[in-house]
């Protein structure tokens, strides 16, 4: 039986599957700048999951921290150190 509740939780589960793919690419990427941006994709999908779990105040705090500030800070770190991860 598929109603509106099943559709909404199904969308959340689909977003969670894509977040797993983004996490896998972020962990196994050699280029660290690409890894940071894959982490930003994962953060966007997590913000959508928080929205669907009915937590709008968490979304309001989580988006500036995880989409805005984490990539900025880690890009400053990569700029000042090294970009490629050696095998």
């Amino acid at each position: 039986m598929i109603g509106p509740m099943e559709i909404m939780i199904g969308i959340t589960a689909l977003a969670a599957l894509f977040s797993t793919a983004a996490t896998y690419l972020a962990i196994t990427e050699k280029d660290l700048v690409k890894a940071v941006i894959y982490s930003a994709i994962q953060s966007t999908i997590y913000a959508f999951i928080y929205y669907m779990l009915m937590a709008p105040d968490i979304v309001l705090v989580y988006i500036p921290v995880a989409v805005g500030l984490y990539p900025a800070v880690i890009l400053v770190l990569i700029r000042k150190t090294e970009r490629w991860e050696k095998d």
Binding site: A26, L32, Q42, A66, I74, L77, T81, E85
Partner: peptide
């Protein structure tokens, strides 16, 4: 993972996932 920047990125993902469990 041997690189420290990759360790920091993984640590942020770990913390966010733990927060998601608390919300579920």
């Amino acid at each position: 993972k041997p690189h420290l920047t990759k360790k920091i990125i993984s640590l942020t993902i770990l913390g966010d996932t733990a927060n998601t469990f608390a919300l579920i």
